[in-house]
Design a protein around this nucleic acid. Structure first.
Lengths: 195, 195, 195, 195
DNA sequence: CATGAATGAGTATTCATTCAT
DNA sequence: CATGAATGAATACTCATTCAT
């Protein structure tokens, strides 16, 4: 009966949705959410304005799904072998990956930090259970510091976070001057090459 | 006819302007610039919509002056005696002040970080010569690290920045859980209480 | 290739059309024409949006055919033996039928009255030659009043209409409280049980 | 302080609101609510589109207030001396007024009947306490029939309503042919000139 | 014949800005 | 100097209709 199979339609829908999300992400990151029109997103995605609404009920929903998908990507950079235990090499790899990720996706990080600053977004992040990711990461890093005989592992975890966020902030705001690779080396030195 | 001197008028104008800026700052910080209407700012400031335009030519100009005034405030927390040389006590005082300032003005920092993330704002910050502040601060801190025999003073300056920004980020995003005072102690320990 | 005869195809087409009309009628009556989307009609009819356009060129044409078909139904309740002469029993039956029809199709009457109120619909009704029905009915009822010695048969016809429409209005607007059966009895008394 | 007095502003606001309501009423009645754009209403009222939103939050609110104001007008045609008792002359005057009102405001009645047919509007009418008006009217008319020795006063009240609504329906739908004045005479004869 | 993705004209609504008073 | 009514460009969103498959 159907001129296209269900699979074909599903494929089309997924591709389109992906395309719209990508277009929106790029524009949101560069211009800020409220300065981007649905028209522009459609143009960037190569479709018509109206079609966006076949996939997202509103600009807000589009934003929400975008954040959700972005967080999903974050998961990929963490806990490579899934055993919940970080080896020294994995820790080094993690730090390297964080920095690489940052360097490759500077606009996306800008976008995410922008959102994190907004009260409304904060509530949403909580709903999206960002804690699940962070708390898991938390324990693993705490365990790492414990196993490697750091004094005061809990505070060290906070410091580790502080440094990573500080790196992101500085690099995002000042990518040309900030010596990210040098700083990365120092961080790896501090946390993975104990004397 | 006029019972007021020119000075009084100037005073009134400045107070009004200050009131409008305060109103705008509070609302921008809580809701994000584009979600705040001129009407709301007028309401918050206790004046009429139209009057704002006697003091600022546009919403954008209001935003610019707000950032400018905010940066002016930042200067106050830095270099108390103006000699360009930081003593150990002044360094400790500076760190303490930074943290206090952050704790007392959490919404304002949110606002500033939000702005820093936006490309357009970045250009504007450059015009506002934020570098004047930072470069001065830069040298002083670099000198501080040099005088106190830190290895690699230049990188240490970057690390110092990284840590301060990381603290701000973490505290702004997670004020309840982040152990800001403990971290502050550790930072002071690291930079002001050399063993 | 084709296992179906032309007649079967015609039958299928008519059934589909009927289904679409029924779906549309129900939705139009409950929600008002302009609040019903083609999508909803398709859903209610259990088919796809696009298929509707194989049977009707536009929403407006669908509406027109709906009205036309609805009027056709009205004919069925009138002039059972087709001789153009109403007996007392036929008049009573007619009144009974009108009331039953109203009770069974309250939403449809709402819909029709809604349409009658709209200037555009009025023009269309004229095109649809509703007068053919009404004028025929007119004469028959006029003749009825004449043959049964009512004073001023012409005005009585208008009054008869007035009462029937008034019953419909009241019942449609207030089905729970309006004593339609009692009123019906009184009307039958007045027009079919002369003293 | 104020360049216009509070009274002046109030006056302006009331006049404008009235003007918008009038414009909307005329257009709604002629074209049906959903076929009238806010732009058209503004044009008809001689103002800009945006200004309507200084007075009404949405098209729906405009519609609600319109109905509310229309119902208020209905009150004016009823119970002239407010004693709750209808004399024969007042009953005759009431019938005359109803018919005159109908003749002078045919489009408005169309509009009101259209709305009454819509389920959503019905709920709203209930909120607007149309019953207050009708129930009061109800009792007065019931009392009238009781005092004038009509058999079965309660049913007579329903019949009276039925006839009035029937007149409105017929006249609204067929103003040129419907002999409203003759029918009016017959109604007055029936209810006010007992033999 | 049947599907639903795709289009785009049309519409309600917002809000920075102007200006008569 | 101060007010808030007024404007209109900008924008999110809807939905009848088309059409490739």
């Amino acid at each position: 009966m159907s001129p296209r199979t269900k699979e074909q339609y599903t494929k089309i829908r997924e591709d389109r949705k992906e395309g719209i999300l990508n277009a929106a992400l790029e524009l949101f990151a560069r211009q800020g959410v409220s300065h981007v029109t649905m028209q522009e997103i459609a143009l960037q995605a190569g479709i018509s304005k109206g079609l966006i609404y076949n996939y997202f009920n509103s600009k807000e929903e589009l934003l929400n799904e975008l954040i959700k998908s972005f967080i999903d990507h974050l998961y990929e950079y963490f806990d490579p072998d899934g055993d919940g235990i970080l080896s020294t090499e994995e820790m080094e790899y993690f730090i390297e990956q964080q920095v690489e990720n940052l360097k490759n996706n500077i606009d996306y990080y800008k976008f995410l930090y922008m959102l994190l600053m907004q009260p409304s977004a904060q509530e949403m992040m909580e709903k999206l259970q960002l804690e699940v990711l962070t708390s898991k990461m938390w324990k693993m890093i705490g365990t790492y510091f414990l196993r490697h005989n750091f004094t005061d592992p809990e505070n060290e975890t906070w410091i580790f976070h502080t440094i990573l966020d500080g790196i992101a902030m500085n690099y995002v705001f000042n990518p040309d001057k900030y010596p990210i690779d040098k700083i990365k080396e120092l961080v790896i030195q501090k946390y993975c090459k104990p004397v």
